[in-house]
């Protein structure tokens, strides 16, 4: 094959995002739809670090979905989405897509990249949490990194099992029972060479198990990387009041309603994109009160300093949170 590049493959994304066409739709597992997206005229899409999201416009909202490729500039992006009947409608939107449909996406967002100095990468996936891990595993195989993948899923419902077996070979350890997965993980976390990093994505109990087990075994936080794949995993939280320092307004934020949604309902315009604490768009400056951080975007020092909040997912520890609005 001879290809002549006429444009930089990794150039900045177009203003206003990427216009893409649905090039393929298939069932990855019961209830899980894999969608292949291409540029309408063909051509390479921007490269991305493993574990990145594509932020897709889904009707009137935007949702972030993990890209499953190895991250090299390629003609297509693939996402795999679990239908969540109780979700916010994003997954239903994706499941309704047909070949030929046009969609709009923002460029890839990275918040879950592999650590380049790691001597070994221990990847842990539960259920649909396998999507970023497929990306990690593909990139690790391409670049010759040492890795293994623990993958737990319901019997018969393991999305991407065959591809993972291809990519990982004996480095894939799949489990159809939670107990078996947790036992094996506990043993693995207790016996990793120095320089190992662990990455986990899956249901909240699996994430908590990995984080708590690792901490109990003396893993420092810098070696443990967790990707919460859905804001739906977040609990509804306590009600609080947002005080607007500049305009003097007060906006009540009930349990189960995000600060962002409450502000919007009150007519306060806040730029936003992913609404899952990933993209960084909706950052607000906090002038008083202590934020309850639930985002994946701000760094630990920024969380500690407490002077900014990602209002799409984060809330308030205090009854009132004062914002620079």
């Amino acid at each position: 094959m001879t290809a002549v590049l006429s444009a930089p493959p990794a150039a900045a994304t177009e203003e206003g995002g990427l216009l893409l066409t649905v090039a393929g739709v298939e069932e990855a597992a019961p209830g899980i739809r894999t969608v292949t997206l291409r540029r309408p005229g063909g051509g390479l899409l921007p490269a991305y670090p493993p574990g990145s999201h594509l932020v897709l416009s889904c009707g009137d909202r935007r949702n972030a979905y993990s890209l499953t490729g190895d991250g090299m500039a390629a003609p297509e992006y693939r996402i795999s989405v679990l239908l969540c009947p109780d979700g916010d409608g994003g997954s239903a939107f994706v499941h309704a897509l047909q070949v030929g449909d046009a969609v709009v996406a923002a460029g890839p967002r990275s918040a879950f990249a592999p650590v380049s100095t790691a001597r070994h990468h221990l990847l842990v996936a539960g259920g649909i949490g396998v999507t970023p891990m497929l990306s990690h595993a593909r990139a690790a195989a391409r670049w010759g990194r040492s890795f293994e993948l623990f993958y737990g899923h319901r019997p018969g419902a393991g999305a991407h099992r065959a591809e993972l077996a291809d990519v990982c070979g004996p480095r894939l350890r799949a489990f159809e029972q939670a107990a078996g997965l947790l036992d094996a993980l506990g043993a693995a976390l207790a016996d990793q060479p120095m320089g190992t990093h662990v990455y986990v994505c899956g249901p909240a109990p699996l994430m908590a198990f990995v984080e708590e087990t690792a901490a109990g075994l003396g893993w420092p936080g810098d070696r443990v990387h967790a990707e919460r794949f859905s804001a739906a995993d977040l609990d509804p939280g306590e009600p609080f009041v947002a005080r607007l320092a500049r305009s003097g307004g007060r906006v009540p934020v009930p349990a189960g309603v995000s600060l962002l949604a409450a502000l919007e309902a009150a007519g306060v315009a806040v730029p936003s994109m992913c609404r899952q604490g990933v993209c960084g768009e909706c950052r607000l400056t906090v002038t008083a009160g202590r934020p309850l951080h639930r985002d994946l975007y701000l760094s630990p020092p920024e969380h500690a300093s407490g002077d900014a909040v990602m209002c799409c997912v984060s809330r308030s520890l205090d009854d009132e949170l004062e914002l620079d609005l």
């Binding site: 001879t2 590049l5 006429s6 150039a11 490269a47």
Partner: peptide, 18 residues
């Protein structure tokens, strides 16, 4: 990233082919 960038900026003088 940068060889294609260079070729795109100076297409008459430089090229990267696969």
């Amino acid at each position: 990233t940068l060889l294609p960038e260079l070729a795109a900026t100076y297409p008459g003088a430089m090229s990267l082919q696969q």
